[in-house]
């Protein structure tokens, strides 16, 4: 997989990392480094997997299920206390409309 400038910008957007102030040299350096990371992982594609069943999940045991019992929550105050901003009832975030 080739990492280019578009891949970097798309990935940065998905991770909400602002790279608008980065210089071309910095972006070129990052592109090259990420290309090396991806290349390292791509070594795996050299393994012959002919006839090996696909591994669909990293964990091979089955799910342990929980009984459907509701338990009291820590309470609103405790939950809100960890937020940077709240009004005592809801979390407050900058105005959002739409989004992706």
């Amino acid at each position: 997989m080739a990492i280019d400038r578009d891949t970097i910008e798309h990935s940065a957007h998905l991770a909400r990392i602002d790279i608008s102030s980065w210089s071309d040299a910095e972006l070129a350096s990052l592109t090259e480094k990420l290309q090396r990371v991806v290349g390292y992982v791509e070594q795996l594609s050299q393994i012959d997997t002919e006839g090996v069943p696909p591994s669909i999940h990293p964990v091979e045991i089955g799910e342990r299920l929980r009984e459907d019992l509701a338990v009291a929550t820590p309470g609103r105050d405790a939950i809100l206390r960890n937020a940077p901003s709240h009004d005592g009832e809801t979390f407050l975030v900058p105005q959002v409309v739409g989004g992706d």
Binding site: I79, S85, D87, E89, T90, F91, L92, V93, P94, Q95, V96, V97
Partner: peptide, 12 residues
């Protein structure tokens, strides 16, 4: 989101 309020309110 309500009117002039600069915040969105989140209920989880």
């Amino acid at each position: 989101h309500e009117g002039e309020d600069p915040h969105s309110h989140i209920d989880l």
